[in-house]
């Protein structure tokens, strides 16, 4: 880390110092990161290890519906699925949380009462992040008041890309203050950050500002989560804990559709951040369609025959 190592995070007060710190972070070796992620993706996970990985992945899913066409009925259906992903098999673990727009939080909280499944709400003018701070705070306040256990906020990519790190920092800190005890996930929208160096800077910026989780994407921009981007973020949380002692979670979101994809992410977590992160408390998968594929693979393992999508609920 060079000079940056000696900078204590508490001293990062001014805009200039923040900029100096973020620009002092070592650059990401693009080819190296992509090769490393591709290499780890070739690991073969079979039989009992696969069964373990599938159950772990199910328990890490943030079952997500973020459409303009979302209805209370759809959210209730999703909540039912979150609590009992496979109604025919009680041994399937419940998912970590469901993720909805802030106006549907109350509906989700009602539907999930007593199940132990969390309710995450996107807030702060998701997915663009283009709104005045007051509107973002009001959005967050409403979701927290309605009982959300996690807030997924988006950063102002325009400010970040134009170099106004202080504005992004203050916005995250303000939202965090609004959240109180509620967990704050900060969406970096890596598809718009262009370079891995920016992903590393944005990760550190979010963690310094108080994020409990850093999340890759909104799912509305392509590319969404990729393995190399997640690798860079996992390195960031690992290094951040080594520096400050505070552990931050990671959530790739969008583009994770198959069990194979999900298991690749788990391998990446284990090999990069370490086994400490291999729990729903510290790692989440933001997705919806992957759940059915996980369930189909799970049933293949339990029954011995290939499963078909006709036998699982549509979201």
């Amino acid at each position: 880390m060079g000079d940056a190592v000696s900078v204590s995070t508490e001293t990062l007060t001014g805009a200039a110092e923040l900029r100096r710190f973020l620009h002092g972070l070592p650059g990401v070796d693009q080819v190296g990161a992509e090769e490393r992620a591709a290499r780890l993706a070739t690991r073969s996970i079979k039989t009992s290890a696969k069964a373990y990985a599938i159950d772990l992945a199910i328990s890490m899913v943030d079952l997500t519906t973020l459409e303009g066409a979302d209805t209370p009925g759809k959210v209730r259906a999703l909540c039912a699925k979150a609590a009992h992903p496979d109604p025919a098999d009680a041994s399937v673990p419940k998912v970590a949380a469901i993720c909805v727009y802030s106006d549907l939080v109350a509906e989700a909280v009602r539907a999930l009462e007593g199940t132990g499944v969390g309710v995450a709400s996107v807030a702060t003018a998701f997915p663009s992040g283009r709104a005045p701070l007051e509107a973002k705070l009001a959005d967050t306040r409403r979701a927290v008041a309605d009982g959300a256990s996690e807030i997924d906020m988006v950063i102002d990519r325009g400010a970040f890309l134009s170099g106004d790190f202080q504005k992004v920092f203050e916005e995250i800190a303000a939202i965090k203050a609004e959240c109180g005890e509620v967990h704050l996930k900060v969406i970096l929208e890596t598809g718009e950050l262009v370079t891995y160096d920016n992903v590393r800077r944005a990760s550190w910026l979010a963690m310094l500002a108080g994020a409990d989780f850093i999340k890759t994407s909104t799912g509305k921009v392509s590319p969404a989560a990729t393995l190399p981007v997640t690798l860079v973020m996992l390195e960031a949380v690992r290094d951040f804990r080594a520096r400050t002692g505070r552990q931050v979670g990671v959530k790739p979101a969008g583009g994770i559709r198959t069990t194979k994809d999900a298991i690749k992410y788990l391998v990446l977590v284990n090999e990069t951040a370490g086994p400490d992160w291999l729990s729903p408390e510290w790692f989440r998968l933001g997705a919806s369609s992957v759940l059915n594929d996980l369930l189909m693979q799970r049933r293949k393992l339990t029954t011995g025959v290939y499963a078909g999508p006709d036998y699982f609920t549509l979201d």
Binding site: G304, V305, Y306, A307, G308, P309, D310, Y311
Partner: peptide, 9 residues
């Protein structure tokens, strides 16, 4: 047999 038991066939 795999084809015969496949639930999506």
């Amino acid at each position: 047999p795999w084809l015969a038991s496949h639930m999506d066939v």
